[in-house]
Design a protein around this nucleic acid. Structure first.
Length: 328
DNA sequence: CATCAGGGCCCTG
DNA sequence: CAGGGCCCTGAT
């Protein structure tokens, strides 16, 4: 089943102009996201693959500006020459996924004086939420995250990429690109189970069917009201309230999408917001009430800032109490 | 060795 | 609306 890599030899470059302020690294790299072999980050540069309108793409985003005067160089590699309007559609999609046109002025102003959030906003000024992936791809991640450790999630994801994705060679890098739904639509549940994804095979198959055959349309869903989006996502087999909140925030850009807190998050929030011992965590309703009161319609964005700050600190030197709460 | 819980969700009563 | 079961894996 494994196929060879595709050499992407045609190169196209354009410039993008995000709104200011814009923090390149904190937007394109999220140290709490688990690593997938479809992207790679170094300070100032982000590579990732993209399956766009059936075409395999290799992308490099390069920081050529500052927080106050942002400027991005986008390089797109493909196996064939691309049309100008195709490149424009890629740029538009990236602008959506990475929130390049987001206006943070109101958020920054409202919480600049918040004792906890203010310093974090100043430190990460211009950071945006983002998703590297399409909705279908993000759902695959949500499914392999469920009920297991990071190590196992990583191994399941690698097995899926190796069997159904394509390895793309570009810019002296090799990164996997996601499969289109039609590929897994043709695979049996038993074959998936052989990759040790366990009972998740059923969810993967059924969600894939929804995208491959039943016309689940991401772009159309973006234009619908939040509640309608929630219902549509919840209707997918294997997708529940926890996954839905992550996607309403990360992919549909609802900054208030925080209605579910899992046990490991509860422990971390208890420490962060109440300085409570993680062994005796603050109740979920109490945490939610605090977020609502303090941050209102921005509650998930606010928590995202504080959460990312925590994981950057961990990456840069260590938050001992945190390591015990993350099962690697 | 056995048992258990894990970065949920479905299904049943 | 509470609770058992689910694939596997590593921790104990």
């Amino acid at each position: 089943m494994k196929t060879g890599s595709i050499n992407l030899t045609r190169k196209h470059e354009i410039t993008l102009a995000p709104t200011a302020p814009f923090n390149f690294d904190a937007t394109f790299h999220k140290p709490d996201y688990f690593p997938t072999p479809d992207n790679h980050w170094e300070p100032g540069t982000k590579w990732h693959t993209m399956l766009w309108q059936g075409t395999h793409l290799g992308l490099r985003l390069q920081n050529e500006g500052t927080v106050a005067r942002p400027r991005l160089r986008l390089v797109v590699w493909a196996a064939k020459q691309l049309r100008r309007d195709f490149i424009a559609s890629v740029a538009q999609e990236l602008s959506y996924r990475f929130n390049l046109q987001l206006d943070l002025a109101d958020f920054n102003k409202r919480f600049g004086r918040d004792a906890q959030l203010g310093p974090v906003i100043r430190k990460w000024r211009g950071m945006r939420p983002m998703s590297d992936s399409s909705l279908y791809e993000a759902i695959m991640i949500m499914i392999v995250l469920q009920n297991c450790t990071v190590r196992r999630t990583v191994s399941m994801m690698r097995a899926l990429f190796e069997n159904y994705g394509r390895l793309l060679a570009f810019d002296r890098k090799e990164l996997y690109c996601y499969w289109p739904p039609s590929v897994i639509d043709r695979v049996s549940e038993e074959e998936l189970r052989a990759l040790k994804v366990g009972y998740r095979a059923k969810s993967i198959k059924r969600v894939t069917r929804s995208f491959a055959g039943d016309g689940f349309d991401e772009l159309a869903l973006r234009t619908k009201p939040q509640e309608e989006q929630r219902k549509a996502l919840l209707s997918l087999y294997g997708i529940g309230p926890a996954s839905v909140d992550y996607m309403l925030f990360g992919l549909f850009h609802h900054w208030n999408a925080l209605g579910h807190i899992s046990p490991w998050e509860q422990k971390i929030y208890s420490k962060l917001f109440f300085d409570a011992n993680p062994d005796r965590p603050v109740s979920v309703p109490k945490l939610l009430a605090l977020f609502d009161k303090r941050y209102g319609e921005y509650k998930m964005l606010a928590v995202h800032y504080i959460w990312e700050d925590l994981f950057w600190q961990r990456k840069e030197g260590g938050i001992p109490w945190l390591d015990e709460l993350i099962r690697l």
